[in-house]
Design a protein around this nucleic acid. Sequence first.
DNA 1: CGTATAGTTTGATAATTGTCAAACCATAGG
DNA 2: CCTATGGTTTGACAATTATCAAACTATACG
Lengths: 113, 113
Amino acid sequence: MTMRLLPHPATEDIELTEVLRALSDPVRLEIVARLSVAGEMTCTVAGDDLGVHKSTASHHYRTLREAGVVITKQEGRLKYMSLRRDDLQARFPGLLDSILSATHPRLPVPAQP
Amino acid sequence: MTMRLLPHPATEDIELTEVLRALSDPVRLEIVARLSVAGEMTCTVAGDDLGVHKSTASHHYRTLREAGVVITKQEGRLKYMSLRRDDLQARFPGLLDSILSATHPRLPVPAQP
DNA sequence: CGTATAGTTTGATAATTGTCAAACCATAGG
DNA sequence: CCTATGGTTTGACAATTATCAAACTATACG
């Protein structure tokens, strides 16, 4: 029952244009809005009722991860995503906060334990 | 020698995802960085040494304008672009500032008079 | 071991996008 | 009126992207 981190860019390698592009898609922005409320979610929960196929959602998870917006850790069969708040704040101060305050999840999301 | 404003979205119609997408292109981000320093520029000056054809630059001006990032006014033959700082601040507080502080123009830009 | 669960990968497709080149339009100025 | 200037539009093309469906992988559990 070990825990693994999926590969993701180092903080200093996060590119502004890639972050902005990742967040410029409504589906991905919704995922990020949910993560900002829930703190940490499995892909299944994050992708619930998004209106896209699960493979499409999976593609969006990868886009967010490769842009440096989320980090994913695997525990057993589940993959938990969470926002890289501190890394983004260090790299682009205020950016994520300003985006999040303009965004609210369309769907109620379970609070983290 | 009258002055005309080109059509652009009302402040309340500016969409977050469209702003983010507009700013997610390196060429457009460079234009915006220049505008943030120069305050107001003609298209020719804004597009100087961007590394793209002038028709491509023109396409980027339109993208920025339609996303609500810049406003363009025409005086004679010249078109002056400037950032919609106040409108963006009203709509998405802190967003433009955080992006601008992560960006600096690659090229020295003449200060506005 | 066999099966169900969680999520990814691999086509395939349609739509969007960034780019250049050439033609075009509008205004200023001789 | 003619021409040069500043910028846009149109057409073409290659690359990227959002999407679905189906196949696949890996882990947990009985």
